[in-house]
Amino acid sequence: MSDLLSAENLKKSFGTLEAVRAANLRIAAGEIVAVMGRSGSGKTTLLHLLAGLERATAGRIRYREQDLSGLDEEALALWRRANIGLVFQAFHLIPTLSALENVAFPLYPVRMSARERRVRAEACLGQVGLGERAQHRPSRLSGGEQQRVAIARALVNNPSLILADEPTGNLDSTTGNEILALFQKLRAETGAAFLMITHDDKVAATADRVLRMADGILADGKGIA
């Protein structure tokens, strides 16, 4: 199976602090990969590097053979819009928008009719089971519902890779299990790959593969040393 995303010898330093010292991984299309590690092991920094939100100090990231190192901020934003969905532990919804508008949020700068945007957002909201709460603002949704809205937002641009940072970290175990089940369902329906950052063994257990990160070092058993 060809790689969807790969990282080689990724490094990221903040001054003298080496947050990521050597990260190597490969993610195949439709695969669910969990990256486990303790707090401060560099997991979130790694996710930000893979999403193009941070610039690597050294190393290379490839997406379908495209080297992302040469892209500037604007090109990376367009790349994310076209290929990546992001899910955060803190949900990060826009408080002034309804659930439906939050889902459609990544499409606002895209040239398309308001109707098409709404239809796509409604479909995604339906996929996560929140069609009935479309007009509710985040403050009127539970934590689990907010995370579902965030997942629907990550799906709305039909990404091939969803990067999720502690997606169940702010949820109780029952709701967390529902979210994980939703990932499996969405993988089956959309064929998207998932990279989950977690420190929870139960979450990691739902992944196809589990990679462990410690002291900024991540080794992928798929062959990249």
Partner: peptide, 16 residues
């Protein structure tokens, strides 16, 4: 700034 960060994260260009 959090909203702006979200905009950028979900693919809004700076000019957007």
């Amino acid at each position: 700034r959090r909203d702006v960060a979200i905009m950028r994260a979900v693919g809004w260009r700076q000019r957007n």
